[in-house]
Amino acid sequence: MLSDVRALTGQVRRDQRRTWVALSVLAAATLVAIPFDLLFMWVRCDDTGCMFGRQGLFYYWPAALLIAYAVIAVSYIRAARDRGVGTRVLPYAITGAVTAVVITAVSLAAAAWFPDNPPFDGGPMPYWWIVLDRLVLPWGLIGLALLVLARLERHLALFWFTVGYLVLVLLVVPTNEGIHVPFVTDPALQLRLSTVLPQLIVAAALLAGAIGFHRARPGQR
């Protein structure tokens, strides 16, 4: 009897999930961010080096995250209603909206504080600081929100996917520093283009997850 209960609740959980939709929307948001990042980035170079600011992140991501999580929530609610079950997506959507507020607050605080008070007196930054910086970027916060979704849906596969994703965006891909682009000698252009590849990698990871979860979803009844 207990195993029947477990089987029934497991089926309900599988029927409530739309993981592939969430990951697809977030992958799309990441791809659309790239031109915004390039368009609004400022770069100033002189003999001593270059300074740059990624204003596009601030202009684009808070609104994009709000829209993305609204789209995800509506998609979950519609699909669940069509299937005849309720949904657990609302806390995830609220977490996503909170991440939009966090990005805005961090961006404003950094813009107000760091120009006159560079962290570590402008010297080399410790690794933990770099990881923390990546965590409060949109891609790190997307991962944190996905952990909430995995918990809400009791979705072990999504949990492990998210752990892998967070390792990728926090420890492997330099989302805050960019990746050097070969054959580009102009330092300003190099800075601009170096931000593109990390975003493409993050979008590809999310898209790969979306495809994987789409293929693994239970058959339509």
């Binding site: 009897m1 209960v5 029934l8 299937r83 005849g84 079950v85 309720g86 949904t87």
Partner: peptide
């Protein structure tokens, strides 16, 4: 058995439709 199933599904789904 059936009523336990209804309660189990209803608890997990929060809200469940008759056809489901």
């Amino acid at each position: 058995r059936v009523r336990l199933g209804i309660l189990a599904i209803g608890h997990e789904a929060r809200r469940v439709e008759f056809g489901y």
